[in-house]
């Protein structure tokens, strides 16, 4: 359900970016969505497809979603590793649980292709 609010916020941001660049049409958007962000890529796509129909600026915008895997860095031995475990990850090298999330929380617009 939050994906609809996020799609609406995304439409507002795209309109602002298009305005700043004197463009009347958004052609393509690339998003980075982390696996830990809680955003379901298919739901966001579905919601944005509904939102863009009402907005001539966005009606032909294509969306690419880059899903960013969860990557941790160990606070003890500094090893960086990816893992699907979002609850109780341990370092594969030294078994430490003092881990920092390096990536996987992204909910970003990376770039926008505009007609000029």
């Amino acid at each position: 359900m939050h994906e609809l609010s996020i799609a609406l916020a995304m439409a507002d941001e795209l309109a602002r970016i298009a305005g700043e660049n004197n463009s009347g049409k958004v052609l393509h958007v690339t998003l980075k969505i982390g696996s830990l962000s809680g955003i379901v890529a298919d739901s966001l796509r579905f919601a944005f497809d509904a939102v863009k129909l009402e907005n001539p600026l966005l009606s032909s915008a294509e969306v690419t979603i880059e899903e960013i895997p969860l990557v941790y860095q160990c606070g003890d031995c500094r090893k960086t590793f990816s893992s699907d475990d979002m609850y109780f990850p341990t370092c594969p090298q030294c078994e430490s649980v003092a881990l920092k999330i390096v990536s996987g929380e992204e909910q970003h617009i990376a770039n926008v292709e505009l007609e000029v």
Binding site: A9, E13, I17, H108, L114, E115
Partner: peptide, 17 residues
């Protein structure tokens, strides 16, 4: 033909909020 340009933004989807 219209031209296009790609703008790198790298900002949160929820920037306004």
């Amino acid at each position: 033909q219209k031209e296009s340009k790609t703008v790198a933004v790298h900002q949160s989807l929820l920037k306004a909020n």
